[in-house]
Amino acid sequence: MDKQKRIPIIPLKQKLFTVGVLVVVLSLYAAASIFTGSSPARFMNGIPEMFNFIINDLIPPNWSYYERVFPALLETWNIALLSTSLAVVFSLPISFLAAGNINKKLWLYHPVRFALNVLRTIPDMILAVMFVAIVGLGALAGVYALFFFSLGILIKLISETVEAIDPGPLEAIRATGGNILQIIWFGALPQILPQYVSYSLYVLEINVRASLVLGFVGAGGIGLILKQQMSLFNYGNIAMIIFITFIGVTIIDTLSTSLRKRLV
């Protein structure tokens, strides 16, 4: 070794690597910001512009428009509720199929996992577009879309919980001569119940937010009037929609979060 050389604090290789990563990340950013016309300076300009817009155009909201907003928001909520309920029911059995400690049949386990992974790559709106095409315009298309969307999330969460349960009770019930359904019902279900309820509420929150946009593609809910009012540049009405939606979402989130806190 050459004793004249400076002793590096950080090994050269690591230094080069870090610099390399930074160069890649920043050049990708440069490309992306040119492509989208959003340099950091312009990004920062956007924020005051937004406040200007809110103060000049959105305020005051058209309060009397609530007559249209309420029924639409209720429909949005109903879509979220029904799709979540369906997903909650269907996710339970499938979660056990997707849990490696319960489903030991590999020929069944791997296809289920694969199908779930594919399902979870599909953004919610894409499902909405597909179901509008299949069943036609209306809230039901939204229910289907969010059902499949939340099914993927819920099964992933629950099957991970199932995989983490204590195997002891399952073994004990198997030893008493219980069959697989009894093992799941008596040994596994009580162990996952709090998480199951909590994740269901969490998915309800996600679905409430997701259902706001459904109307843009004709799948029911508040998105429909939002789209109409946007194309008319009717900012007073838009402000009212945003205002009521924000309050509604906040109420649901708060209730659901406080329930979840008590559960786990």
């Binding site: 204590d166 002891g168 009894q182 009580p190 162990q191 709090p194």
Partner: peptide, 26 residues
């Protein structure tokens, strides 16, 4: 055949009675 384990292997969140009734599942 009854079986007893080192770690009891009870369903912790269930009641004692429900755990004992598991013996009738078969």
């Amino acid at each position: 055949i009854g079986m007893i384990f080192q770690n009891y292997n009870l369903v912790k969140r269930s009641s004692v009675l429900r755990n004992v009734l598991a013996g009738r599942l078969g």
